[in-house]
Amino acid sequence: MQDSNMIGWARPLALIVEDDALLTLLADGLLAAEGFDTIFAAHETEAMVQAAVAGRIAVAVVDLSLDGDVAGQRVIRALRQHVPDLPVVVITGFDSDAPEANLRGLGWPTVRLHKPGGYDELIPAVLDVMEQARTGAWPKEWRRDTDYTY
């Protein structure tokens, strides 16, 4: 069997931004099993360096709280300055109503999972945001009635 990199095919690259080492390993294992290469960052600055060095990232998995700071939003904004339609899966322990969990103004496509249990849904969420980016189609449940054309 030939290595896929030998014939010019690249595996999709996922950036995992998480300061909990065990959760990073969990996400890495799940993504690797689905054919992703992964790179990691535990801090905001490290995420920006990894993204710059890596080149084209297929998806980012970002924890909103990094080292006690709500830095995940800044990471997402910075990543999307370079790739506006970057698929992002946000993983957070914050309740969806908490101000710290506010995802408004961070762009699209974005899916939110609640940690730690949300890791069970990581792969479907990653595939969903990547498909949204590929097709440009927002999930139907996000659309208002006025968004539909009849």
Rank of each mutant, 00 (worst) to 15 (best):
S65T: 05
A47N: 03
H82F: 08
G72S: 05
V59G: 05
G35I: 12
G68H: 08
F94E: 14
D67R: 15
D97I: 11
A78I: 02
I57R: 02
D37A: 15
F36K: 09
V61D: 02
G35N: 11
L64E: 03
L66C: 06
G72L: 02
P87S: 12
V62S: 03
R56C: 09
P84W: 04
A60P: 03
V90E: 00
D95H: 15
V89G: 10
D97W: 13
R77D: 00
P84F: 02
E44Y: 12
A32V: 15
I76T: 02
A60E: 05
A98G: 13
L30M: 14
V75Q: 04
S65Y: 01
V75T: 06
G105A: 04
T38E: 07
A47Y: 01
Q50D: 07
G105P: 01
F40V: 07
A71V: 02
G93A: 15
G55F: 09
V53Y: 11
D37R: 15
A32F: 14
A32T: 14
G72M: 02
A60N: 06
H82T: 06
D37H: 14
G105K: 00
S96I: 12
R77K: 07
I57G: 05
V83K: 01
R74L: 05
L106C: 03
N102W: 04
A98I: 08
T92C: 10
L30D: 08
V88G: 04
V49Q: 13
M48S: 06
D97R: 15
V75H: 02
D95F: 14
V70W: 00
A41S: 11
A32W: 12
A60S: 09
E34H: 11
A58Q: 07
V70H: 01
R74G: 04
A32G: 12
H82Q: 07
H82N: 07
R74V: 05
D37W: 09
R77E: 00
L103N: 10
A42G: 11
A52T: 07
T45E: 15
R77W: 01
P87V: 13
D28K: 11
N102F: 03
R104Q: 13
A42D: 07
G35V: 11
A47H: 02
Q50W: 10
M48G: 04
L86G: 00
A58G: 11
F94H: 15
V88L: 07
